[in-house]
Structure formats: C-alpha cells, structure tokens
C-alpha cells in the first residue's frame, strides 16, 4: 500500500494522524528529530494495523539536507503531511531572536524547503497529495501570539499558492486550521471544551477532508465562524483590544 510521509511526527496530533492513516491501510514514513524516541509508536501501529512503519531522522531547520532526504526515500510517498509546529512563548520571542527564528523556521521556512522539493516531484508525476497543518492563529495577528501567528499566516498563504499551482497537475493540497487542541502542550490550560478538539478528532477530520479533496478545513469546524467574527472587527477597534 502507498506510503504517507509525516513531517514532525513527535507531536500528539502527528501520532493521531499516523494512527488514522495506518487504520486506513497506508504505510508510514515518520520523520522528525531524535526519531528513535518513536520506537514504541511504531510498534504500536504495527500491532494495531500491520502496515509498514519507518522512522526517519529529519531536521526541518537543516535545509541543505532536505533534497537528499527526499531522494533517499526508497518508495516515494503518495502523500506528504506537515504537522511540525513550534509555539514559543510570545514574550520570549519579543526579546530573544533565536526563539523567533526557530518559530519561523519550523512553522514556515523549513516546511517551504521540504515541500518545494516534494511539490516538484508530485507535479512531475501528476500524482499525490500534500497536507499542511497551519493554525487559526494565522488568520489575524494578535499581541498574544503574533510571532507564531505570522509564521502560520505565511504557511497558509504558501499552501494556498501551492494548491493553485498544482491544481493543473491533479496534485491536491489541503490546509488544516486547528483551533485549540488538547495536547501535552495545552494540558495545563483551561481551554473551553466546546472550542477544543482532541488530537484524534483533528486526525479524523484531516483524513476525511483529504480523501474528499477539500481545500481548507477548520477543526473544530466552529472555528470557521469564530475566526470570521474576529476577522470582521475593524482594525481601528481591534488594535485596542486584548483577545
């Protein structure tokens, strides 16, 4: 069965995505840094589904390694899913350039670097799909997280352009915009249950949307309306708000 390559495989969302695709029979390339820590996940998926699972060391920030990484894949993946994301503390980013740069690298430039390579190959073969996990935080810059938000905004725009470019070759690009997700990063936060998705829900929504060739989805879907309202607030008003 076809392979799906998951970039940034160590997050809770990525784990749920891996299990979801495996459940539907896809073999997996799981790529990330210090990937050996994912041995137990690989074993878990093999017992659950008996698909093939390969762990691949990959660093989004090491741009010069990306070409070789992709070329070395024995069987090219049918789908590539970028789940990688880095959310530094906004305050820290404001005074620490390394944190800001890392945010931009993981959320944007690194993803662009690997997807450029993937896109060329898929366009050439006229086959495949790409999924990018962006964020609702990219819809409008807010003082609470605009470094993270702006990197996701850039990624969203990139995916939109890529979708436009690859349309003719039949390669489909899906943008996933999660709102709050209950992960190990957010466990301490008091997130409103009606707006918070479990990672498994994000994974299910992504899989179904990708299979149906949807372009952009929000998960939970209520975020579409939440963001619509937030986007409609006039800038004159918005700049004085704390949301």
């Amino acid at each position: 069965m076809s392979y799906v390559l998951i970039i940034g495989a160590k997050s809770d969302i990525a784990q749920a995505v891996a299990r979801e695709y495996a459940k539907h029979g896809y073999s997996l390339y799981l790529a990330g840094r210090e990937i050996q820590t994912l041995h137990s996940l690989a074993t878990d998926i093999k017992i659950r589904t008996s698909v093939a699972v390969e762990l691949l060391e990959f660093d989004l920030g090491a741009f010069h390694t990306h070409q070789a990484f992709y070329e070395n894949l024995q069987e090219k993946p049918l789908g590539v899913i970028v789940v990688a994301g880095y959310m530094a503390e906004q305050k820290k980013c404001e005074s620490d350039w390394a944190e800001t740069l890392n945010t931009i690298t993981v959320n944007y430039t690194g993803a662009v670097s690997i997807l450029n390579i993937v896109a060329n190959d898929m366009e050439h073969n006229k086959n495949g799909f790409i999924v990018g996990v962006s964020s609702v935080a990219g819809e409008r810059g807010r003082k609470a997280n605009y470094i993270y938000g702006s990197s996701k905004a850039a990624f969203t725009a990139y995916l939109s352009g890529l979708r436009n470019r690859l349309y003719e070759s039949g390669v489909h690009v899906l943008t996933v915009k999660p709102g709050f997700v209950a992960t190990k990063m957010t466990i301490g936060l008091d997130l409103p249950p009606k707006l918070t998705a479990q990672p498994e829900k994000v994974a299910r929504d992504m899989f179904q949307a990708q299979q149906k060739n949807k372009d952009v989805i929000y998960t939970k879907s209520i975020w579409k309306w939440v963001m619509l309202v937030i986007k409609m607030i006039p800038e004159l008003k918005f700049k004085g708000m704390s949301i």
Binding site: D12, S40, L41, T43, D44, I47, R48, K184
Partner: peptide, 16 residues
Amino acid sequence: KPYNYFLGFDEARGIL
C-alpha cells in the same frame, strides 16, 4: 487514557 501504546502481541498464545 493517553498512555495507550500496544506493546506486543504473542500470536501463538493470543496474549496482548
């Protein structure tokens, strides 16, 4: 609940 890996399956004996 999030501590939820399958660790092994002994097919001969049916032990998960």
